[in-house]
Simulated assay, not measured.
Amino acid sequence: MIHPKTEIKHISDEVGYGVFATELIPEGTIVYVKDSLEIVVSPTDYLLYTGEMQDVIEKYSYIDENGNRIISWDFAKYVNHCCNCNTISTGYGFEMAIRDIHPGEQITDEYGIFNLETEIPLICSESHCRKKVGPTDFDSHYQVWDEKIRKSIAHLFEVNQPLMPLIDTETRGQLDQFFQDPTTYRSVYSLKHKKELKKHPSILANGIGH
């Protein structure tokens, strides 16, 4: 589920649609939660679809750490990538604002975390645009992503959180543990598809990516 203070707008024929803030969304706010209404397409189910349907699923889904494709039931699926994104996925299974998002500002995300299987060219005006996102992004950028998350998650309980009731009990327990002991931080690398995680036993062991 996307944050309630958002709306969908058409940007251009080239880009398509995007999601925009209707009110100030402060840094540390949970902007997206995978709730019970999301559509989960398992790897086997995906193979059973026609090529045309697979193309649609690819366009509007992300791949989670279990290899499932997740399709949002609301307009969260229209959030676009930006190399200077203002929200990011966290190791706790939700996406969070990593700086204040002002009314009328487009909500953008980091697609490199979505377990991409092929490279995607980017339409981006940022001066430091990576030009493409792809399967190698997790290994190349997760430490930088973790730095951004660590900074912003400190504000988690300082701001209004309309999506907090959708966070499951286990995740709340992990958050409680982190705020009591920051060394238990759950790296964003935990979102990488598990078949790839076997290459990084040290990350599996301590959960902090170092």
Rank of each mutant, 00 (worst) to 15 (best):
E14A: 14
E65L: 07
F157N: 14
P135K: 00
F114D: 15
Q174E: 14
V159M: 08
K131H: 09
T6S: 15
S152E: 05
E23G: 03
E119Y: 13
I88H: 03
S152L: 04
D176M: 07
L197C: 06
I149K: 03
Q143V: 09
L122R: 12
L37I: 04
H128C: 07
G18N: 01
E196N: 04
S187K: 02
V56N: 11
N68Q: 06
I107M: 02
Q161F: 05
E158G: 00
H141P: 00
E105A: 08
Q106D: 14
P26I: 03
Q161A: 05
E27C: 10
N115R: 02
R69Q: 04
Q143W: 04
T169K: 13
G112F: 08
F138Q: 01
K77W: 00
Y142W: 10
S89T: 09
S36F: 12
K151F: 02
F157A: 07
G18F: 03
F20G: 00
K192F: 00
K199I: 03
K195S: 13
A76T: 01
P103H: 07
D64R: 07
I30Y: 08
S125K: 13
E58Q: 10
R172H: 06
S42N: 03
C85I: 01
G67R: 03
N80W: 04
V40K: 13
I101R: 13
G134C: 01
S190G: 14
R99Q: 10
I39E: 13
C85N: 14
E117C: 02
Y62A: 00
V133H: 04
R130Y: 02
T171V: 13
V133D: 03
E119P: 07
T108A: 10
K132F: 10
D13C: 02
Q106M: 15
L166M: 15
Y111F: 14
G134E: 00
G104F: 10
S89M: 07
E23I: 04
K59W: 08
Y185N: 06
T171I: 12
E158Q: 08
E105P: 08
D74C: 04
H102R: 11
S61N: 01
G207D: 03
R186M: 08
R69G: 02
P43N: 06
H210G: 08
T22Y: 13
I208F: 12
N206K: 13
Q54N: 06
K77Q: 06
H193D: 14
K198M: 09
F94K: 07
Y49G: 05
I8N: 12
R186D: 06
S42I: 03
A154G: 09
P26L: 04
T184L: 05
P182R: 05
Y17K: 15
T183R: 10
K192W: 00
S190W: 05
D13I: 05
V41L: 08
I123A: 11
T136Y: 15
V40N: 09
E27A: 06
L122H: 13
I25Q: 13
Y111H: 12
K59L: 09
M53C: 10
I101E: 15
R186C: 11
F114N: 15
I149D: 08
V159N: 05
S12L: 12
D146M: 01
H10I: 12
L122F: 10
K199Q: 13
T90C: 00
H193R: 12
E110A: 12
L175I: 11
Y62Q: 01
F75P: 08
